[in-house]
Design a protein around this nucleic acid. Structure first.
Lengths: 173, 173
DNA sequence: GAAGATTGACTTCTCAATCTTT
DNA sequence: AAAGATTGAGAAGTCAATCTTC
């Protein structure tokens, strides 16, 4: 006697299983899109990260890169940790520890905030800026090779439109 | 004197910066698609995971779910860890420890493999099967609410086509 | 009291080394 | 030796509690 008999005998069972249990607000096409999103993200990010880690030249990992990019794009290259949390998906404490490491590596600096002394400002250093310049070419090549190369231009436009709605969606309802 | 002067003065600088440094095989549209993929993935997965963790009823986290789903879809509900690593993005040791936890929780069982004793088979238990059934409705609602709801049907089809190519791409060149 | 940040305890993953079986 | 799995040490994140400033 098989365990989990409720799930039928596999093979044809897989699809029957899903079709039977799909709620009214989720169809096969959207479920397939969700699965392909998870798969593509995992594969592409994994490969790019791996290549960057193996490459010579003291490149920074993607998590560091995200912080540095947010700082470069900020006025005066400085931001509170609170604002950095919008660019990176981490909790408060996660950001705090990440900035610790970046500061130890000399890529950012904490600086008192005259306007609000509850939290220091995080400032990009020369060295952090250099790390960004060093890493970008490898990152760009990784995006091109493991992602962009497989996506047509018209598909890219659709991705942007749809996925930006997903990202921007408020958590309501 | 600003740090990182190479990156210009922000504001208009951001786009100029990118345009200047974009390699020949990566254009703005594809870069935007890449960024929207990262953003949408982070937001949607984060919210779904969070809701499942908060929900009552002893639901399993997504990482566990992936293992259980792979087992349900496998012949006889059993797989070597090697094969599980195709479904989950983890190293060998990562899988090993994950299976440890699932086994402790009683959702899977290790069973000697008569054909090749280098590695046991991982088998889904009744209890693991029940966990899957308990968790799926919440997961499906999360996908519907945080992802599918924001994606039109025609967009979903484009996503599947493009992202499956990304996932399936070999790491060559 | 609320907001921003940090710290301690804990969880989970990775890398490198190791063990067993093929 | 190669393949599958495991283990110790370390890296990096979370939660809950705490501290400082508003």
């Amino acid at each position: 006697m098989l365990p989990c008999q409720h799930f039928s005998q596999y093979a044809a069972g897989v699809l029957r299983l899903r079709a039977r249990r799909l709620p009214a607000n989720l169809d096969e096409a959207h479920l397939a899109a969700w699965r392909s999103l998870l798969g593509a993200h995992a594969v592409a990010v994994g490969r790019i990260e791996h290549e960057i880690a193996r490459a010579a030249g003291d490149l920074v990992p993607l998590a560091w890169y995200d912080i540095l990019i947010a700082l470069v794009e900020a006025p005066d290259h400085r931001l509170r940790q609170r604002d950095l949390s919008h660019s990176v998906v981490l909790t408060r404490s996660g950001i705090s520890r990440l900035i610790d490491r970046l500061e130890t590596a000399g890529l950012v600096r904490r600086e008192p905030n005259p306007a609000d002394r509850r939290g220091d400002l995080v400032v990009l250093t020369e060295s952090g800026c250099a790390a960004l310049r060093r890493t970008w070419p490898a990152y760009a090549q990784g995006i091109a090779k493991h992602f962009a190369r497989h996506v047509r231009a018209d598909e890219a436009r659709v991705l942007v439109r749809a996925l930006q709605r997903v990202r921007a969606a408020s958590a309501t309802s």
